[in-house]
């Protein structure tokens, strides 16, 4: 299968890209890793008439820590995250996810920012971003905005990026030493989107109670979802099996998946709970909590 015809505009700077987007309006699309857009174009599910390629923009693929946050440029690819030692060391949630997005070849092209912009209901990075309380830097003609992830993910395949705008960067707060996380995904095979997914990040306070909690689930509605009630249960609590179970139950409660070849609704909802529970358990293990009771 082959895409419908389009015009190709390689952008060599962000300004050039924005100018092109402005000029071509709704007909234009940004081409980042291309790992969602190109397959969609091959099936002619997407038919942009202009593609603005941001790959030629120098210096957009950065991955660096600055002012208490990990900054991922719009050109940063999954693979870079997967192999960066400092991510493995400190950003446990992100590290987990980077190894299970798509497949190892797709990850050498796909970008994290592109994935957030694509906002597939079963995508992985939205879940991670919610649990990690990330922000996305969006730039347009009117200037630059920093959008909290909760406001960024609007609906399936819809984000806060407006016409003529592009996302420049994703920002993930740097976890402190008492913070860890875990990403849990059920997939039928490598390269499959999630049947169910959960991202969890916890910060413990000195007394062992939970000082901060991020819990999100994927493939459980039109976009990745924050499990607000679970976070409330966890916040301030001393970790115990009962607390974890209660938080997990909230995930199941708000999970609102569709039935498809991956599974029926009942199964997927159950898995949302199981994965949140397992994610919390794995996180606490990483934080070297002893046996839970």
């Amino acid at each position: 299968m082959f895409p419908a015809a389009f015009d190709y505009l390689p952008a060599h700077s962000v300004d050039e890209a924005l100018a092109a987007l402005l000029k071509h309006g709704a007909d234009a699309r940004i081409l980042a890793g291309g790992q969602s857009l190109i397959p969609a174009m091959r099936f002619r599910l997407a038919r942009p008439t202009v593609l603005v390629d941001i790959n030629p923009i120098a210096g957009l693929a950065y991955l660096r820590e600055e002012n208490g946050a990990l900054l991922m440029g719009a050109g940063a690819r999954d693979f870079a995250v997967e192999v960066a030692p400092f991510i493995k060391e400190r950003y446990h949630l992100i590290f987990d996810a980077a190894a299970v997005v798509a497949d190892p070849i797709v990850r050498q092209s796909g970008t994290i920012v592109g994935s957030l912009c694509h906002n597939d209901p079963a995508g992985d990075w939205g879940v991670v971003a919610l649990a990690a309380r990330a922000e996305v830097v969006v730039r347009g003609n009117a200037g630059t905005r920093v959008v909290p992830i909760d406001d960024f993910l609007i609906d399936s395949f819809t984000t806060a990026v407006g016409e003529g705008e592009m996302a420049l960067e994703a920002r993930f707060p740097t976890p402190n030493e008492r913070t860890s996380g875990s990403y849990q995904k059920i997939e039928r095979k490598v390269g499959d989107f999630a049947t169910a997914a959960a991202g969890v990040q916890l910060t413990l306070s000195a007394d062992g109670t939970i000082a901060a909690a991020g819990v999100a689930i994927g493939a459980a509605g039109p976009t990745a979802k924050r499990v607000v009630e679970a976070e409330k249960i966890l916040l301030g609590a001393r970790p115990s099996i009962a607390v974890l179970r209660a938080a997990a139950a909230e995930a199941k409660e708000i999970s609102d998946p569709i039935a498809d070849t991956r599974g029926d609704i009942e199964f997927k909802r159950e898995m949302a709970g199981v994965l949140v529970y397992r994610g919390l358990l794995a996180t606490l293990k990483r934080l070297q909590q002893g046996e839970l009771h």
């Binding site: 390689p10 081409l31 190109i38 693979f79 070849i105 050498q108």
Partner: peptide, 15 residues
């Protein structure tokens, strides 16, 4: 040093 699925990249991108 980067493996790509050449069906998921446009030739013009390889310029």
């Amino acid at each position: 040093d980067r493996a790509v699925k050449s069906c998921t990249m446009f030739a013009v991108q390889a310029d």
